[in-house]
Design a protein around this nucleic acid. Structure first.
Length: 483
RNA sequence: GGGCCGCUAGCUCAGUAGGUAGAGCAACGCCCUUUUAAGGCGUGGGUCACUGGUUCGAACCCAGUGCGGCUCACCA
């Protein structure tokens, strides 16, 4: 049907797809918000027909543009009978341009009284139902363009996402950080514990991996003397998909020379509360019915204290690995461990106890500090306790949103840590950190004492937009093909 | 990977003693010059996800497959 209409238009020399531009002078929202100023003046608006109420010799059209909707009033007197008859053949979904005077109808609806109307694009496919919109989750993700057209709150979420990201850049750029681009393709995927995606270069006849983190390259930039750097972009991890995980996701990593993890904590809480205010107007947000306040300073708690606070054992009293293993058995922690119990150290078991007892209780923003050395291969040890490192993770609503360290810069110790990771891999951990020899070589050139941090951008966006699933903050989430 | 749930018109959804399918919106035709989920009268529209089985007969019962959602496990 719509194709027939299109064919007729083309035959009459009025092919809408031949239109190359339209002079859009205003958007819907600015007209509606400043009606007193606009009343009686001429505007040109453009957008998609969302509703068409034909009442005979007049019609009302809801026009949707970037910012919202505005009503268009048109009739045979203003437009001429012939032109008006043509307008009545247009369909919901078509994209049009309208020029006319701003006025208010009897019912008080701010509208544009059309003096000219132009068909700019013909929609050959009808839109989903006007009242219920597009609800089917699968279609919403597969055909996000329809979701954006039909569901205003989806548009709002993605505009807010952009605002969050630009505010983060703004915050860092004004504090002397420079944004750099590190490789997505490389021969070694390291810097995090995850399985990578594998691909192949035809030109180099070489197996390459998609990055799982930007850490080791950003530290090379610190070695080179850049002092404050960040890379915000996609990382790729070949792992499970659920409401908090998408195979490609956005992460920012930043590094600051001459700083430590305490500086990173301050940067983290200030940066995120800044982004919250920029995007939502407040540090307080409602997430799935729970009020969360990102206002700095955030609560600080060591991992050992967190376990104790939430009903777990006191690890300061655990003498060695053997005692920790007995404790793990007693507490039923085997399920949380990824190795056989006999291979687990005190640190592995502390981490498992933290996940079991404490993690889910960390609703308001909380820094958990001082992680066991064996699970933190890129982190400096604490000066007074070599079994622990200067590392923290930030938790909100029981979820990790950031991970930061005082960066390990001793090339000899770093090499030993990588060798330990190789052993972990042999013990069955296929996500152990891969050795990057050139990175170790860069540390031999000398990296100043440095603080570094990674923040999961999608998760921040989820909290600030009240999104239940990560797929609701990624425009085109990873899906299996449909056919 | 395990468990549970979903898939019916373009969209939102109904549809069990198993008897070859319905509503609203959208579309099409007619009426209506201030409507706004406009209204009124009329018309057309379906491989009931797919494959197989049971049955005289399957949207419906059974088995398998696909895609999706939730959840547990695993991770980040």
């Amino acid at each position: 049907m719509r194709r027939e209409k299109l064919a007729k238009l083309k035959a009459a020399g009025k092919n809408p797809f031949a239109v190359v531009k339209y002079d859009q002078t205003h958007h819907s929202l600015e007209i509606k918000e400043n009606f007193e100023r606009f009343e009686g003046s001429e505007v040109s608006v453009a957008g998609r027909i969302m509703s068409f109420r034909d009442i005979g010799k007049a019609a009302f059209i809801d026009l949707q543009d970037r910012d919202g909707r505005i009503q268009v009033y048109t009739n045979a007197d203003h437009l001429g009978a012939e032109r008006y008859a043509e307008v009545k053949t247009w369909d919901i979904g078509d994209i049009i341009g309208v020029r006319g005077k701003v006025f208010k109808t009897r019912r008080g609806e701010i509208s544009v009284e059309a003096s000219s109307m132009t068909l700019l694009t013909k929609a050959l496919e009808p839109l989903p139902e006007k009242y219920h919109g597009l609800k089917d989750t699968e279609q919403r993700y597969r055909r996000r363009y329809l979701d954006l057209v039909m569901n205003r709150e989806v548009m709002d979420t993605f505009r807010k996402r952009t605002k969050i990201i630009s505010s983060i850049r703004e915050y860092l750029d004004t504090r002397g950080f420079i944004e750099v681009e590190t490789p997505i393709l490389s021969t070694i995927a390291s810097g995090a514990a995850a399985r990578p995606f594998v691909t192949k270069s035809n030109a180099l006849n070489l197996q390459l991996y998609l990055r799982i983190a930007t850490e080791l390259y950003l530290k090379r930039c610190i070695v080179g003397g850049m002092e404050r750097v960040y890379d915000m972009g996609k990382n790729f991890r070949n792992e499970g998909i659920d409401i908090r995980h998408n195979p490609e996701f956005t992460m920012i990593e930043l590094y600051q020379a001459y700083a430590d993890y305490n500086d990173m904590m301050e940067l983290c809480e200030n940066l995120i509360s800044y982004a919250a205010v920029k995007a939502t107007g407040s540090t307080k947000v409602n997430y799935q019915g729970t009020e969360i306040d990102f206002k700095a300073p955030w609560r600080r708690l060591t991992m050992i204290d967190a376990v104790k606070t939430y009903g777990g054992p006191d690890f300061t009293l655990v003498a060695d690995d053997a005692e920790a293993q007995r404790l793990a058995k007693e507490l039923g922690l085997e399920a949380e461990l990824k190795k056989k119990l006999k291979d687990c150290t005190k640190g592995d078991i502390l981490n498992a106890a933290f996940e079991k007892f404490a993690e889910e209780h960390l609703i308001q923003p909380t820094f958990i500090l001082d992680y066991p050395t064996e699970i933190s291969p890129l982190t400096k040890e604490k000066p007074d306790d070599p079994t622990m490192t200067e590392r923290f993770e930030a938790f909100v609503y029981g979820r990790e949103i950031a991970n930061a360290y005082s960066e390990l810069n001793d090339p000899i110790v770093q090499l030993e840590r990588f060798q330990q990771q190789a052993k972990e891999r042999e013990l069955g951990d296929d996500e152990a950190y891969a050795l990057d020899e050139d990175f170790v070589a860069s540390l031999e050139v000398g990296m100043p004492p440095t603080g570094g941090m990674g923040i999961g951008i999608d998760r921040i966006v989820m909290f600030l937009t009240n999104a239940y699933s990560i797929r609701d903050v990624i425009l085109f989430p990873t899906m299996k093909p449909n056919e």
